[in-house]
């Protein structure tokens, strides 16, 4: 058990180190979400009255598509170097390797949120509070688990750029329903924040358990 945790952390550290050395993905993702906000501004004709109603939707759209890019890249490097097979040949359990990749991808997405949330608050004039950050972080956990599972799957399939969003987005919808509700309340809409966050935690537990059960079938060859 401790062995698997060590493996997971080692894999995550490897991914984060290689990202730190190349600095490819995080700047690109940061640029991407800022661009998404600029496009939303022109698409919606934003003013001080409607910004608060539009902002939660823009946040989730930007986050979801940035997430697809981040998780798609998580296995791209492994595929290009054919290093995933080498990792799977080691006695380390596939589930631990998967957990490490998911952890690293989740941290990269959080780095992208560090850009997205202040930029949204600045450009849309919405509040930036603990409730908002907590809801987004909770959704990130489950989204990372699901996103990485399907990224691992499509990494070895042709037409992967098309398939990843098709398979992942529908399964992220529960997180966007509950997270969307929580973010709307955190930005000042009426509704129950606690109920939405409780649901987010439930979804996190459910999908982390399910993906760790399924990871064996996806990575094993």
């Amino acid at each position: 058990m401790t062995r698997s945790v060590e493996v997971a952390f080692a894999v995550a550290r490897k991914d984060l180190t290689s990202e730190w050395r190349t600095r490819e993905l995080v700047p690109a993702l940061g640029q991407f979400v800022v661009l998404a906000l600029v496009i939303a501004n022109f698409g919606f004709q934003i003013d001080s009255q409607n910004a608060a109603t539009i902002a939660p939707g823009v946040l989730w759209l930007a986050l979801v598509f940035a997430g697809l890019v981040a998780f798609g890249r998580a296995f791209a490097a492994e595929r290009e170097q054919a290093s995933l097979e080498a990792m799977l040949l080691t006695p380390a359990s596939p589930v631990a390797i998967f957990a490490g990749k998911a952890l690293a991808a989740a941290l990269l997405l959080i780095a992208c949120e560090v850009v997205l949330l202040p930029a949204l608050a600045l450009l849309f004039g919405t509040p930036l509070n603990v409730a908002l950050v907590a809801a987004v972080l909770l959704a990130t956990v489950g989204m990372a688990a699901l996103g990485c599972l399907f990224a691992a799957m499509v990494a070895r399939v042709r037409a992967r750029e098309v398939l990843l969003p098709l398979l992942t987005l529908p399964l992220w919808i529960p997180f966007i329903i509950a997270g969307g509700q929580a973010v709307q309340v955190a930005m000042g809409a009426s509704g129950s924040y606690n109920q939405a966050v409780a649901l987010l935690i439930d979804f996190d537990i459910l999908f982390v358990v399910l993906t760790s059960l399924a990871a064996r079938f996806v990575l094993d060859d």
């Binding site: 399907f150 399939v157 398979l167 399924a214 079938f217």
Partner: peptide, 23 residues
Amino acid sequence: LLRRLAEPGPQVARYAAVAGIFG
């Protein structure tokens, strides 16, 4: 679409089974 776009074989059958269960 996953079944259509991926190479047929035991691997995609396993992937599709996971997608079917999650769905």
